[in-house]
Design a protein around this nucleic acid. Structure first.
Lengths: 147, 147
DNA sequence: CTACAAGCTCAACTTAACTTGAGGTCAAGC
DNA sequence: GCTTGACCTCAAGTTAAGTTGAGCTTGTAG
């Protein structure tokens, strides 16, 4: 089989839009993997592009690299992740993502809808209360939103 | 009219769940305001609780303090923000929040649904493409997601 | 009226996520 | 065969968002 062309760090940087230094950094943190040429240069498989895309999107919504790294650990090390592999990751994140989505909706809609309370009493403010409830769920299967 | 009781920094910390040092920090960054007693101690109006609640929720979904501070500038300085004021803030954020919600959904659903591409070609990966499109929208009314 | 918990300021430390720079290697075109 | 741009490593610097600590002041409960 024709071996799928591997990518240099510069090519990955260009195609993914992140700096070479960031790719080195992600590798040091175990988020992506490469192998080396005889001359010690990095070469990446295509799946690195998906990983980087996910890293970027996840970061934008406030997920830390540590959390992403942890999620990525469900992916296989020695072969290109397939449908099932990515599916597993998605499932692992679903709850946390749903939570964040609801937080965002709270911000978007709550700011409009929750005006009645005027926060004269914090106890009656939906924004605050939902936060409380979620906070209390702690000490469980550790939520994504650590920060 | 009976003046609404003002809160000390310790009371705000307890009710909002953030540390006193964080409140000092927010104040230094212009996110919240206080006035001082004759003895130089901070006193806060009730609306500070809503501000802090918003700060916390916003941060959790990846909005920086700088961005929150900017949004808060639409709020009046010398009186307690009313329905209209908060509404304005909500409106200012709506686009950015919608964008983040879609990013989150992309992560949640895209991870499941966008598996077909396997990222053999980055150009065909929805995750990546949507990112590109949004990136290209740049240089406009400056999006929230700076980072 | 006094003890002591709660406040105050300011400087320094911390963690995350990178970037920058120095000093040296690899490889592809002329 | 040499030059030039892409790579390499490793250390140090940067920004955001706080926390910690020292040294000093306030205010309230007994």
């Amino acid at each position: 089989m024709a071996p799928v062309k591997e990518l240099t760090v510069g090519q990955v940087a260009m195609r993914s839009g992140v700096a070479v230094s960031a790719l080195h950094f992600y590798e040091a943190r175990g988020l992506i993997r490469s192998h080396r040429t005889s001359g010690n240069q990095r070469r990446y498989g295509r799946d690195v592009l998906r990983r980087v895309a996910i890293i970027r999107v996840a970061q934008e919504v406030g997920i830390s690299l540590a959390e992403i790294a942890q999620a990525f650990q469900s992916l296989p090390e020695e072969r290109t992740p397939n449908r099932e592999d990515w599916n597993l990751l998605s499932t692992a994140w679903r709850d946390a993502l749903d939570h964040k989505i609801s937080q965002l909706k709270k911000l978007r809609d709550g700011l409009t809808d929750c005006i009645g309370c005027g926060c004269m009493s914090i106890d009656k403010c939906p924004l605050r209360n939902k936060e409380d409830r979620l906070a209390r769920e702690g000490t469980g299967a550790r939520r994504l939103a650590v920060r």
